[in-house]
Simulated scan of single mutants.
Amino acid sequence: MFTPSDLDVLVPTRDRPGALAVTLAGLAAQTAPGFRVVISDQSREPVAGDRLVAAQVRILGHRDRPVDVRRHLPARGMAEQRAFLLDRADRRLALYLDDDVWLEPEAIEVLLAAMNGLRCGFVGFALHGLSYRDDVRPAELAPYEEWTGGVRPERVRRESPAWRRWTLHNASNPLHLAQEHIGAPGPREWRPYKVAWIGGCVLYDRERLLECGGFDFWRSVPPRHAGEDVAAQLRVMERYGGAGLLPSRAYHLELPTTITDRGAECYDYVFEAAAGAR
């Protein structure tokens, strides 16, 4: 059985100390103590010197959530940043949490319960964008399908019908999905559903992620790339399965992205290049 002491929370950050402080505040308020936080910092000015961040690091330590802040330069892209974090994880579970995400207090408790119940490769919360809470998009919600009878491995590629699930996580779609399919959930209720991928808050079985290659493809992609989480999750999903959880307990701070050049998609290098080589 997985417990909070089995968990490393891995946070990549770059030049967003205010957002990082909010993210860390959400971790400090979690109902589940005992996890560890590892931060990979690629900021121009060390984020550990920011007063708000430093205060949250102290609070986390005081509340039995130790924090390890690592300077990691030069920046070589998000896939390498995530690989660096994975190399520093040593617990059974690894939660990748972006530096602009606030979690409800029960979020980690629910993620652990779901991983214990499903025993798949990963589970995660899609991010709410609450500025879109009144923007209901029925067509984008249509691909929703719950897992029943357990999570199973599946092969998801651009040409497959399952790829259309990516629309489920646009705007405030996770909120509208929960309203439609759950209504008023219990405080720790969760339901697994099928995904194409999940961005921003994903809990992996660390050994299974490593077995599927982790983010080792960083050496084969240009430094300016995007979609590294998509490539890693598709590989894990194909072997062990993965699931999103409703209701989502993760909220996007809706700041401008720090990844402005998306000309190179990791999918093309991991899957298209491999197919061409056969």
Rank of each mutant, 00 (worst) to 15 (best):
M1F: 08
T3V: 13
P4I: 09
D6Y: 07
D6E: 06
L10N: 08
L10I: 09
V11C: 04
V11K: 00
R14Q: 10
R16S: 01
R16I: 08
G18P: 01
A19D: 11
L20S: 02
L24P: 06
L24N: 06
A29Y: 00
A29I: 01
A29T: 06
Q30S: 15
Q30V: 13
T31P: 01
A32G: 06
G34C: 09
G34I: 08
G34S: 05
F35A: 08
F35N: 02
R36L: 10
I39C: 04
S40L: 10
E45H: 08
V47M: 01
A48W: 06
A48M: 09
R51E: 15
L52G: 13
V53G: 05
A54M: 06
A54Y: 04
Q56H: 10
V57Q: 05
L60Q: 06
L60V: 09
G61T: 08
G61H: 05
R63Q: 08
D68E: 14
V69M: 09
R71H: 05
L73Y: 03
E80S: 05
E80Y: 04
A83D: 13
L93D: 11
L95H: 00
Y96P: 01
D98T: 00
D99S: 15
D100Y: 07
V101N: 00
W102A: 14
E104D: 15
P105K: 04
A107F: 06
A107D: 07
L111F: 09
N116Y: 09
G117H: 12
F122T: 01
L127D: 11
H128P: 03
G129S: 14
L130Y: 08
S131G: 12
A139V: 11
A142W: 02
G149M: 10
V156W: 00
V156C: 09
S160I: 00
S160D: 12
R165T: 10
T167D: 00
L168V: 00
L168E: 09
H169Y: 14
N170K: 13
N170H: 15
A171E: 12
S172D: 15
S172A: 15
P174E: 02
P174H: 03
L175F: 14
L177A: 01
A178G: 14
A178L: 08
H181Q: 13
H181E: 11
I182W: 07
G183Q: 09
A184F: 01
A184Q: 14
A184K: 10
P185F: 11
P187S: 13
R188Q: 13
E189F: 13
C201P: 03
L203Q: 03
E207P: 01
R208T: 01
L209D: 09
E211M: 00
G214R: 04
D216L: 12
D216A: 15
D216T: 11
S220K: 04
V221Y: 02
P223A: 13
R224I: 02
H225A: 13
G227N: 10
V230P: 02
V236N: 07
E238C: 06
E238Q: 14
G241T: 02
G242L: 06
L245W: 07
S248V: 12
R249S: 11
Y251S: 14
Y251H: 15
H252Y: 13
L253D: 01
L253A: 09
E254M: 12
L255W: 03
T258N: 11
T260P: 00
D261H: 12
R262L: 10
G263E: 13
E265C: 07
R278T: 09
